[in-house]
Nucleic acid binder design. Structure first.
Lengths: 332, 332
DNA sequence: CTGAAAGCGCTTACAG
DNA sequence: CTGAAAGCGCTTACAG
């Protein structure tokens, strides 16, 4: 039913090797031969069988992207960018939602779908990267995000401590005195960003108040809204909030609106991620904006380089450029 | 390097056929044999090679999902749901961003990555489904969305005419008299939803005013914001707007806020899709909420049924349940 | 520059 | 119930 390489060879009057050479762009083929083969390919509408090719070559030109959830705007935008970056290089990305701990871990440890994929870009949520060993995967892996890689893998991440420092310092420069943080806790993002937050307070000679550091159960609007309600119930509510991602900030803004408070007059709000929602929200959201295209492009390049056998045993740690986008939620 | 089926067979002291039988859950295997094989699989950490299996069986248990853009919340949420629905059935989803016309069309016509995938769930934007023929794909295909399938393929879609009728009727029931529509035009969504919009106006004895029907260039916040600005510049601006998706509505709300207009007091706004952003926005967005889980589950089921060779030549058209979620943007 | 042949790792008739 | 062997459609040494 499906046309095979040998059908093309027969029609073009050459050997299968020659057809394969043409398809794989090998040199030393006369223009005439190439034209004949290409005509046959077009006439038969031939498509190489990826399974066979991958079985034989041991490479598929597929990479996996494992992210906690693709319904979350930041990851959706990141996934889209990585998908594009890979496509530019002739690579296809399979996107995996890991959702919770067990699934994420199993995915990585299960060796990523047999031999199908050449490598993986992994944004861990539950799995501690430091506990991953290359034996677990058996394949090239690039880590995304805050969590220390334990020197085992290549990684590309924002300098979250510095970015959080900048975000908090911006709030301080506005003259705010009670600056809350939403999203502390956990083992990754929450820890690292709190570090930058506290560092900025300290640098300004301000003490950090545990009552102003809210943990919540997740990084969604719902959690931001709930944390903000807790903060407003405090005897002395904050006049500024640094939310560890935009979704939390959007939830917090919702609570502030419900409470009839003005942003930024009563409470200034900063987020992290620069998702599209925040740019169009009223008030628009001041946020840390990591360069997602840069991130995507470099993560893919790093992985492909590793797949090609380069890099050796030194593990590279790339720092994603970011800017602080000052918008209405802090009076910008 | 990688362990093979034959390694497992050797270790378990059985033939490769027996190992294959165990892996594929074939009957007539003694518990003892099964246990021996499973022990060997565990000991060697054996993972079947997907390429080899797929080459041999002609099935991969991969399906593709082709959507215009995964960075768009509706598609991100839908992709997440389809991914989950497929996983429940042991199927992996490859997500493809088609972005524009040419890419989308080429993807489908190029036979979907050789033989790798078993079928496709396709949300067309540029390609006219009626022009697709099964010869183009050679594989089972389920269509998503408004555009008529031309009776060639299975499809699952919301009854957009009825839903738009409901949305518009809701605005009429609020006593609004100048009801605008944002997102008309194009060949799919814009046409169908305008049909329901006009139908509702007519049923209420109201004439439709072309000046109140805005096309815009896309379905993003940016387009909604721009269209809303045009509407406000009208000699007689609208007192209600039905936006053909939530992103347009969110953009429109932003323009209204900038203009100092109150929602819903001055202008009531309704969207379509029920993306998470709209639920947390202030004001929260009244919208048509299609049951995305239902959609995902049925699209996957339909495709798998087709892959299994069922369905024959009759093409099924499934209608997704929806509700009108009345929220603050219309005073709910 | 091209051809004939082996082999990637599975599954599946075909025998026993 | 199990074993030996062919074959899915490619790519790649190996000869010529």
């Amino acid at each position: 039913m499906a046309t095979r390489l040998s059908d093309v060879a027969a029609r073009a009057g050459v050997s299968v090797k020659t057809v394969s050479n043409v398809i794989n762009d090998y040199p030393h083929i006369t223009a005439r031969t190439r034209a004949k083969v290409e005509a046959a390919i077009a006439a038969l509408d031939y498509k190489p069988n990826v399974s066979a090719r991958s079985l034989r070559k041991g490479r598929s030109d597929f990479i996996a992207l494992a992210i906690p959830e693709m319904g979350s705007p930041y990851f959706a935008e990141l996934g889209a960018a990585i998908s594009r970056a890979a496509k530019r290089r002739g690579i296809t990305v399979l996107i995996d939602q890991t959702e919770g701990e067990s699934a994420a871990e199993r995915f990585v440890l299960d060796g990523m779908r047999g031999q199908l994929i050449d490598g993986i870009i992994f944004s861990p949520l539950a799995t501690a990267p430091a506990k991953l060993t290359s034996a677990d995967t058996g394949k090239p892996l690039v880590l995304l995000g805050e969590r220390p890689a334990g020197g085992q893998f290549d990684r590309v991440a924002v300098d979250s401590v510095q970015a959080s420092y900048d975000a908090t310092t911006h709030l301080i420069s506005l003259g705010r005195h009670r600056i809350a943080a939403i999203g502390v806790g956990g083992t990754g993002t929450g820890v690292v960003r709190r570090k930058g937050y506290r560092k900025a307070l300290k640098a300004a000679g301000m003490a950090h108040d545990p009552a102003l550091e809210l943990a919540g159960t997740g990084y969604h609007r719902l959690d931001g809204a709930a944390s903000m309600r807790e903060l407003l119930a405090l005897p002395e509510p904050p006049d500024a909030v640094f939310c560890f991602n935009d979704l939390l900030a959007l939830g917090a803004l919702r609570t502030l609106a419900d409470a009839g408070l003005r942003v930024p007059a009563d409470v200034a709000v900063v987020g992290f991620d620069d998702i599209e929602d925040g740019r169009y929200h009223s008030p628009s959201l001041t946020t840390i904006s990591p360069d997602k295209e840069w991130l995507a492009d470099n993560a893919v390049a790093l992985l492909l380089d590793r797949i090609a056998g380069n890099g050796g045993s030194t593990h590279r740690d790339l720092t994603v450029p970011y800017t602080l986008e000052i918008r209405e939620s802090t009076g910008g």
